[in-house]
Design a binder for these strands. Structure first.
Lengths: 149, 149
DNA sequence: CGATATTATCTCGCTCGGCGAGAGAATAGC
DNA sequence: GCTATTCTCTCGCCGAGCGAGATAATATCG
């Protein structure tokens, strides 16, 4: 077992960073009386909002790996907390479009904004070739995780 | 709101990579009849093992943010599955040292080894200056997440 | 156009992870 | 030695998520 492969240091750093990012999300969740799944749901919804895509209950559940019962309970929680609205689909009235409330968006930006600012600030310390390496590495990691196992 | 800051692409990639890594861990959990917390616990235990540090039940629970009741239940699950042994503390017999079973270590290596291999393989595509940038960025992200909020 | 299959969500009953409170057992301090 | 502290465990409970199936709206086909 070659435990002193210097490349493993980077793997360690990668995992440490993801762990710390996860803890940061958990702090956001706990501070707002939410559960990790609720935070993940809000992220999905905000991403979709930025891309001006509608997210139905079913799509949301699929994105989070929940079944329909769990998805209903999730949207119930978010709606009860005022983070989200249920809107019946215009063309297909079986569908329920889940819309994030403006306040929830601001809440998320207020919490994650500083972290995002620090990360973008980090990037200013590198030249374009280094930044390209960072982007390429992250994309490679994403693909490796998606394709492995 | 400057939504087209090019540095945000890297933030997006970072999040996409962490999401995908999380899903990969979740696959390991599900495939072995475990829960996300159990996987996190095994990672803590394996890290400690590599550093030849003893992990008591209390330390494990603290690392995962569980209270004592949840920690007991967690160790019960892991012990029942054969991934872990309870060993009474030698000097302080109130303590319970949690030791990972060799089989669990091998199980983890078999699952995460390929991914680690792919990530280290990625690094070979960069020169030392680029690799240093990647390491620096990851360390910076870890610190930013740990210190923010 | 009406009967049937399909799709999207919701309801019900349940399992089980995690919490709070407090008990039990061992150690440390005076 | 007696008391306070520390570490783990037990008990009862809450709530997230699942499986099965109900309900309602749409699509399909004769």
């Amino acid at each position: 077992m070659p435990t002193d492969d210097p490349r493993l240091e980077t793997v360690h750093l990668l995992r440490a960073a993801t762990v710390e990012l996860g803890l940061h999300s958990a702090r956001f969740a706990q501070r707002n009386g939410m559960h990790p799944t609720d935070v993940r749901a809000l992220i999905v919804l905000m991403d979709a909002r930025r891309a001006t895509e509608e997210v139905t209950a079913g799509r949301l559940g699929a994105a989070l790996g929940l079944n329909s019962a769990g998805t209903t309970a999730l949207v119930d929680r978010l709606e009860r907390a005022g983070h989200v609205r249920r809107v019946r689909g215009a063309t297909d009235r079986r569908k329920v479009v889940v819309e994030v409330d403006e306040r929830a968006v601001e809440l998320g930006q207020a919490f994650f904004g500083p972290l995002i600012g620090r990360v973008t600030g980090l990037l200013d310390g590198y030249d374009e070739r280094e930044r390209a390496a960072i982007r390429g590495f992250l994309e490679g990691v994403r693909r490796a995780a998606a394709e492995a196992g």
